[in-house]
Design a protein around this nucleic acid. Structure first.
Length: 276
DNA sequence: AATGGCCTCCGGACGC
DNA sequence: TGCGTCCGGAGGCCAT
């Protein structure tokens, strides 16, 4: 499940692999992936474009084509790979970008949940999903003061609040569980009543977890691989996610899994006490 | 009106 | 072996 560290790792690999390449024909094999514009316009607009750079905002990959930007969200299982032209196309390959130099950039997605939007680069600031994103966790704007204000009058759980991309961009189910474990905060704790100390811990541990995970190339807990087809290594550093019934690394208590806002949520019942 | 939360998309994994 | 159920990111929709 690509979250910020995985998308950042994909970004870095694609930046190396496809920057400077010229796009030729584009095959859209599963039209639902392309949200805007129409598939015909999408294909026509990409023809002849040069990949200038690859950026990221939250969990969105931004493929910079100069005048246009391809905004790609991997959702659950989207992945990119660069292949030799004509190499056998695997199952679940939904979009093929033919490149110069006998290469193909292919988008694969078992769940078919991923999306692509092609917009004029000058109009990116009007694209609602990007505009509404909260700060990047590693930017200096993401402070405990910011989080206090963002979480005020939020009667929802801290887990739901951290998953909300409007609060902070790029966190998903795995890293929120890890952050709350390290911050010793119960996932059901209400967001608006977190202490100043808890808010500071959450901000610090968000930075720690996200930067460590990026340094390890993300977590491969499902099908995730980077643009080279390589797995991440941070799954071996996870403390609670997927550790149901295993002993807590701090206290030895059994890690518990419960549902919070419809998401499987892992935590240590002893280190992360239920508030009142 | 704003906010929270449930449903939906899909197919692999898993359990009975 | 086969069928039903579960899971999840984010947008749409509905209830309060």
């Amino acid at each position: 499940m690509p979250e910020l560290p995985e998308v950042e790792t994909v970004r870095r690999s694609l930046q190396t692999l496809v920057t400077g390449r010229v796009i030729g024909r584009v095959d859209v094999r599963l039209p639902r992936i392309v949200r805007t514009p129409s598939v015909d316009e999408f294909v026509a607009d990409l023809q002849g474009a040069t990949i200038v750079d690859v950026h990221r905002r939250g969990k969105y990959l931004l493929i910079d084509l100069g005048g246009k930007t391809l905004i790609s969200h991997l959702r659950m299982e989207g992945r990119y790979g660069v292949y030799k032209a004509g190499e056998g196309v695997t199952a679940h390959t939904h979009v093929i970008f033919h490149l110069d130099g006998e290469k193909e950039l292919r988008y694969q997605d078992v769940r078919q949940f991923g999306t692509m939007d092609l917009l004029p680069t000058s109009g990116l600031h009007d694209f609602a999903p990007l505009v509404q994103l909260g700060p990047e966790p590693l930017q200096k704007e993401f402070t405990s003061r910011y989080l206090r204000d963002a979480f005020s009058r939020r009667s929802t759980s801290v887990k739901a609040a951290l998953l909300d991309q409007h609060m902070v961009a790029g966190l998903g189910n795995i890293y929120v569980d890890e952050i709350l474990f390290r911050a010793k905060v119960h996932p059901m704790h209400s967001a608006e009543t977190l202490s100043a100390r808890a808010l500071r811990c959450i901000v610090d541990e968000t930075r720690n977890v996200i930067s460590d995970a990026i340094a390890h190339g993300g977590s491969s807990v499902k099908s995730y691989v980077n643009g080279y087809g390589e797995q991440g290594q941070y799954q071996f550093a996870l403390n609670v996610y997927g550790k149901t019934g295993e002993p807590c690394v701090n206290c030895g208590a059994s890690i518990v899994k419960m549902k919070v806002v419809g998401r499987g949520t892992h935590f240590c019942p002893k280190c992360q006490r239920q508030p009142r």
